[in-house]
């Protein structure tokens, strides 16, 4: 999947709450509970299904954190793939409808 075309959205099978800068995510499908760190939380919160991942990295991660853009992009792609494998994020090369409220 070309990196410019990665769109991410939150799954409908989850409940999420932010606490002290970290996001707590509960997956009701398999009763797993995830705690995201601050950078992961920023990506998760920006997962509206319409904003390309590269744009999220550029406008959110690189603006808030002291990081090389290419490094941030590579890390974000790996993170998104892992969270997608757990059913927390939906990933597509086309815009998606975000299924849960932010």
């Amino acid at each position: 999947m070309p990196e410019d075309c990665i769109y991410i959205a939150r799954s409908s099978a989850i409940a999420a709450r932010a606490l002290a800068g970290e996001m707590m995510v509960m997956n009701s499908a398999d009763s797993t509970f995830f705690t995201l760190n601050e950078v992961a939380t920023a990506i998760f919160q920006a997962a509206d299904g319409h904003t390309p991942l590269r744009e999220i990295v550029r406008n959110q991660i690189c603006e808030q954190f002291d990081v090389d853009p290419e490094q941030a992009q590579a890390d974000a792609e790996q993170f998104v793939a892992e969270l997608s494998a757990h059913g927390i994020l939906l990933v597509s090369n086309q815009p998606l409808a975000a299924e849960t409220a932010r």
Partner: peptide, 15 residues
């Protein structure tokens, strides 16, 4: 003013 970057990561637990 930018915050210290940490690689995006998560901790997974079974409920």
């Amino acid at each position: 003013e930018k915050k210290l970057y940490q690689k995006p990561a998560f901790r997974c637990e079974q409920v």
